[in-house]
Design a protein around this nucleic acid. Structure first.
Lengths: 202, 202
DNA sequence: CCTGTTGGTAATCGTTTGATAAGCAGTTAT
DNA sequence: ATAACTGCTTATCAAACGATTACCAACAGG
């Protein structure tokens, strides 16, 4: 990005000063670091998708070097898959808890409002749909889709029609988020009534 | 791709034979060629999206050289925008004719079934949503979204709630097409009841 | 101390990318 | 005929990409 310092980590900063042991942060344990990288990658992939995001951008977002990303995850594809699966799990989890008791379309808003805290998760899922031509990504996307239907059917007791409408609403919200129409509402102010029924009183 | 002959057009074939005027097709007029290129680009972009599709792939699909694509459209972004806008126009057009009389959700299936003939159009629209982080593409996507709402509201007399449900169903269909779950129904056979209510008796 | 292991980086590579430049072939107008 | 225009190519380029290699720094255990 703009900040070239992003790529300079504590190691290099210390070395470039000629001081080996000043302002040196301890290396972060493997699992914690991996978690942090997935988080950064989620942010990056959410915006520009699988093809549109370079491993260097993910690295910059995380504040590490690009080869390190590859070293930890093996390939860019494996990284995206981990990001996608994690996002899918989190959203599924949230769906399950909200729809646990009985199916009720009025709970929909509640469900997605809490998920909106991590709107990047929803965007990653959309990007997964769009990149389904990559075999492994398509597989993961279909699995997620099926899993969501399973949740609605088994945990919420929804009929196929109800599940369809629920999923449709969810994907519509994902799309509206992706195109950022709320931020550009000034360009088309007359769509507000529509947005109002998509995001009630928010 | 696999066929290296794709890149050899009539010009080169004639020249490589040392014969200047044998089996030589006349150059195609500008507008007709442009149309053909947009068609090829639509096919290419529908599968792998804006970032995932190279201009060379578009050129191979159309049977012309890669620089020619750039020459005709200026940039890859301009090409995608033309493809996206044309797909949006065609789908909007179809929406308008079907929903012209009065709003009726039962006509939904009919509307999308005819549009399914060009499922690539729907995929291009989805890819436009996914690539909305590119400013011009985002603008085009929002414009399309607004236009669709306008059609539903003005031509079909739909309420915001009805428009929301209609659009949601449409985008769900786009998504289901994108992930290709129908082709992989064997992997998750129990989602068939869901697909049956998404694509009635098809 | 020094030795192995873990957590990282810099340097580099081969490929692919979008885009430019220059030129050739066929058609049309003078 | 020839000059000009349109259609389209080959050749080339600089930048960006994912990935490999080799190395450096800190810590832990003997």
């Amino acid at each position: 990005m703009t900040d070239f310092l992003r790529g300079r980590n504590t190691h290099e900063i210390a070395r470039s000063r000629g001081v080996a042991s000043v302002a040196m942060t301890s290396p972060i344990p493997r699992e914690a670091r991996r978690e942090q990288l997935v988080q950064a990658a989620t942010t990056a992939f959410a915006q520009k998708g699988y093809y549109g995001t370079s491993t260097a951008q993910v690295a910059a977002e995380a504040g590490v070097s690009q080869p390190y990303i590859i070293q930890v995850f093996g390939t860019k594809e494996a990284l995206f898959l981990e990001v996608h699966k994690r996002a899918g799990s989190l959203v599924s989890e949230q769906m399950r808890t909200v729809a646990a008791s009985a199916f009720d379309m009025t709970r929909f808003t509640e469900a997605y409002r809490s998920a909106l805290i991590d709107r990047t998760l929803l965007l990653v899922i959309l990007q997964g749909f769009a990149a389904s031509s990559v075999p492994a990504i398509g597989h993961s996307a279909r699995k997620l889709f099926s899993e969501m239907y399973e949740i609605l059917r088994d945990d919420a007791g929804a009929t196929p029609d109800q599940a369809r409408d629920f999923l449709a609403r969810g994907i519509l919200i994902n799309t509206v988020l992706a195109i950022g129409i709320q931020e550009h509402i000034d360009d088309n102010p007359w769509v507000k009534p529509l947005l109002d029924v998509i995001f009630p009183e928010s």
